[in-house]
Amino acid sequence: MFVAFEKVFTLANMIYLFKGALISLMIAALALFFGLILGIIGASAKRSKFFLFRWLGNIYVEVIRGTPMLLQILLLFAVMPAMYTAITGSVIRPNVYVIGVIALSINSGAYTTELIRSGINGIDKGQWEAAETLGLSNFQTMKLVILPQAFKRIVPPLVSEFITLIKDSSLISTIGAVELLKSAQVIGNTYFDVMSPYTLAMVFYLAMTLSISFVARKLEGRLAQSD
């Protein structure tokens, strides 16, 4: 079954896979970052006193969470160039990595919105009341009392979100981005053996996800110190 393994296991191929892994990691990290920004905006919208903002926040979260990520990527891949043409009048060949990051960010933002919202809602309302009786404004209470506590609850699921993003970034191979999975496929095609490069890709994915979990556990231990 693995007859071609020694042939595939060359320095050049390993470097090629490593580059693919770096791209997957970069895309996931960027999507996590922009998703976090979208999540803060989304959570603020969902907690807003204005109905319109709450409504928009709900629609965003429900549409993204209720549809497949692959579909979102493919749709954005189709829509973005058309929109560009409609606005500027000129035609572009879309950069699939940029589209990938945007699609993953929008997707992650919906999940992060819920993470942040439930992190904030999970703080006992007694904390709000105690702050109120001490004369702190709503904004001060949010900044000094609620968010620092919510942050601790948000970090662990945010790490899971990062791991999910690393795995799901493989979906953008469908629009032509050469990340880790696609790199493995490319190698597979040259050797007419996908088994070995796929197995190697798995090892790379695991190396990334397990080391992130490991760091996260250390971090959680630190954060839990005051509890």
């Binding site: 007694g126 009786t133 620092p148 506590q149």
Partner: peptide, 17 residues
Amino acid sequence: KLKMGFVFQHFHLFPHM
């Protein structure tokens, strides 16, 4: 409001400080 202090049954200290 600041003329009044309030003490709760469940204290509500800020646990992160």
